[in-house]
Amino acid sequence: RLRTTITPEQLEILYQKYLLDSNPTRKMLDHIAHEVGLKKRVVQVWFQNTRARERK
């Protein structure tokens, strides 16, 4: 499986959303995924990875 490439514009939106809520609901994940044009699962994993990186 190929990795999904996230553009700088998408990253900017994801980080803005992360600052508002680091643990979004399913509904919010759907909305964010639609807004940035990525699959919900990709957005979900991005949030998981970002939370894990923050803990280190």
Results as ranks from 00 to 15, higher is better:
residue 48 Q to N: 07
residue 15 Y to R: 12
residue 4 T to D: 13
residue 37 G to Y: 00
residue 36 V to L: 08
residue 34 H to P: 02
residue 44 Q to R: 06
residue 18 Y to D: 00
residue 49 N to V: 07
residue 23 N to E: 10
residue 45 V to Q: 11
residue 32 I to W: 09
residue 22 S to C: 08
residue 14 L to G: 00
residue 1 R to I: 10
residue 39 K to H: 05
residue 17 K to E: 11
residue 15 Y to P: 00
residue 1 R to W: 09
residue 40 K to G: 12
residue 45 V to C: 06
residue 15 Y to F: 04
residue 38 L to P: 02
residue 56 K to S: 14
residue 53 R to E: 14
residue 43 V to L: 04
residue 38 L to C: 06
residue 29 L to D: 01
residue 4 T to F: 05
residue 54 E to G: 06
residue 6 I to H: 06
residue 2 L to W: 09
residue 26 R to A: 15
residue 7 T to R: 04
residue 1 R to K: 11
residue 56 K to L: 03
residue 56 K to C: 09
residue 29 L to W: 06
residue 7 T to Q: 10
residue 11 L to Y: 11
residue 12 E to N: 10
residue 7 T to N: 05
residue 22 S to N: 06
residue 52 A to Q: 14
residue 29 L to Y: 12
residue 50 T to R: 10
residue 4 T to W: 04
residue 38 L to A: 04
residue 51 R to S: 11
residue 7 T to A: 12
residue 21 D to G: 06
residue 39 K to P: 14
residue 25 T to K: 04
residue 44 Q to S: 10
residue 51 R to K: 13
residue 34 H to T: 12
residue 34 H to E: 13
residue 47 F to M: 04
residue 31 H to N: 14
residue 55 R to H: 11
residue 1 R to M: 14
residue 50 T to E: 15
residue 33 A to G: 05
residue 34 H to G: 12
residue 48 Q to H: 09
residue 21 D to P: 03
residue 5 T to D: 12
residue 37 G to N: 06
residue 11 L to N: 14
residue 33 A to Q: 01
residue 14 L to Y: 00
residue 49 N to T: 12
residue 43 V to Y: 01
residue 9 E to K: 08
residue 18 Y to R: 01
residue 40 K to I: 12
residue 12 E to C: 09
residue 3 R to T: 15
residue 32 I to G: 02
residue 24 P to M: 02
residue 43 V to R: 00
residue 11 L to T: 09
residue 14 L to Q: 01
residue 53 R to G: 13
residue 19 L to K: 11
residue 6 I to V: 11
residue 23 N to L: 05
residue 16 Q to M: 14
residue 55 R to P: 13
residue 50 T to N: 03
residue 12 E to I: 04
residue 40 K to M: 13
residue 38 L to V: 08
residue 30 D to K: 07
residue 13 I to D: 08
residue 8 P to Y: 13
residue 51 R to W: 09
residue 46 W to A: 04
residue 3 R to V: 14
residue 51 R to T: 06
residue 1 R to T: 15
residue 33 A to I: 03
residue 15 Y to N: 09
residue 40 K to S: 14
residue 4 T to R: 03
residue 21 D to T: 04
residue 40 K to Y: 13
residue 54 E to L: 08
residue 10 Q to N: 05
residue 39 K to D: 13
residue 48 Q to V: 08
residue 16 Q to L: 15
residue 44 Q to M: 08
residue 6 I to E: 04
residue 24 P to G: 01
residue 49 N to W: 02
residue 52 A to M: 08
residue 17 K to Y: 09
residue 12 E to D: 09
residue 35 E to R: 02
residue 32 I to A: 01
residue 27 K to S: 11
residue 52 A to C: 07
residue 54 E to P: 05
residue 42 V to K: 13
residue 15 Y to A: 08
residue 18 Y to S: 03
residue 4 T to G: 11
residue 29 L to G: 02
residue 55 R to I: 13
residue 11 L to A: 12
residue 48 Q to I: 02
residue 35 E to H: 06
residue 18 Y to N: 02
residue 41 R to C: 14
residue 40 K to V: 13
residue 52 A to S: 11
residue 5 T to H: 02
residue 6 I to D: 04
residue 46 W to K: 01
residue 20 L to Q: 13
residue 56 K to N: 10
residue 50 T to H: 09
residue 5 T to S: 07
residue 36 V to I: 13
residue 42 V to R: 04
residue 15 Y to W: 12
residue 41 R to E: 15
residue 39 K to I: 03
residue 38 L to I: 02
residue 41 R to L: 11
residue 47 F to Y: 05
residue 16 Q to F: 12
residue 2 L to I: 14
residue 32 I to E: 01
residue 1 R to S: 13
residue 50 T to A: 12
residue 22 S to K: 08
residue 42 V to Q: 05
residue 23 N to R: 09
residue 24 P to A: 01
residue 22 S to Y: 03
residue 13 I to C: 10
residue 47 F to V: 00
residue 2 L to K: 12
residue 53 R to W: 04
residue 27 K to P: 13
residue 32 I to H: 03
residue 29 L to A: 03
residue 47 F to D: 01
residue 3 R to W: 14
residue 24 P to L: 02
residue 19 L to R: 09
residue 29 L to P: 01
residue 13 I to W: 08
residue 35 E to N: 00
residue 33 A to P: 02
residue 42 V to C: 11
residue 7 T to M: 07
residue 25 T to H: 04
residue 5 T to G: 11
residue 17 K to N: 14
residue 47 F to W: 09
residue 9 E to A: 09
residue 13 I to N: 06
residue 15 Y to V: 09
residue 42 V to F: 04
residue 1 R to Q: 15
residue 6 I to G: 03
residue 35 E to V: 07
residue 41 R to N: 14
residue 3 R to I: 13
residue 2 L to S: 15
residue 53 R to H: 07
residue 47 F to N: 01
residue 34 H to L: 07
residue 4 T to E: 15
residue 45 V to D: 15
residue 36 V to C: 11
residue 17 K to P: 00
residue 19 L to F: 05
residue 51 R to V: 08
residue 2 L to F: 12
residue 31 H to L: 12
residue 36 V to Q: 00
residue 47 F to R: 02
residue 41 R to V: 12
residue 32 I to T: 06
residue 39 K to E: 15
residue 17 K to D: 02
residue 54 E to C: 06
residue 1 R to A: 14
residue 27 K to T: 12
residue 12 E to Q: 10
residue 9 E to N: 07
residue 11 L to Q: 09
residue 10 Q to G: 01
residue 51 R to F: 07
residue 45 V to Y: 06
residue 20 L to E: 10
residue 5 T to E: 15
residue 35 E to M: 04
residue 1 R to D: 06
residue 21 D to E: 11
residue 22 S to G: 10
residue 22 S to P: 13
residue 41 R to Y: 09
residue 33 A to K: 01
residue 31 H to S: 14
residue 35 E to C: 05
residue 5 T to F: 05
residue 32 I to Q: 02
residue 22 S to E: 12
residue 54 E to S: 04
residue 41 R to T: 15
residue 2 L to V: 13
residue 41 R to K: 14
residue 18 Y to K: 02
residue 26 R to G: 15
residue 31 H to K: 08
residue 43 V to D: 01
residue 23 N to Y: 09
residue 3 R to Y: 11
residue 39 K to G: 13
residue 5 T to Y: 06
residue 3 R to N: 13
residue 38 L to F: 01
residue 16 Q to E: 05
residue 56 K to Y: 03
residue 48 Q to S: 10
residue 38 L to Q: 02
residue 21 D to A: 03
residue 21 D to C: 04
residue 13 I to L: 09
residue 48 Q to Y: 09
residue 45 V to I: 13
residue 44 Q to F: 05
residue 34 H to I: 03
residue 44 Q to T: 07
residue 6 I to M: 12
residue 4 T to M: 12
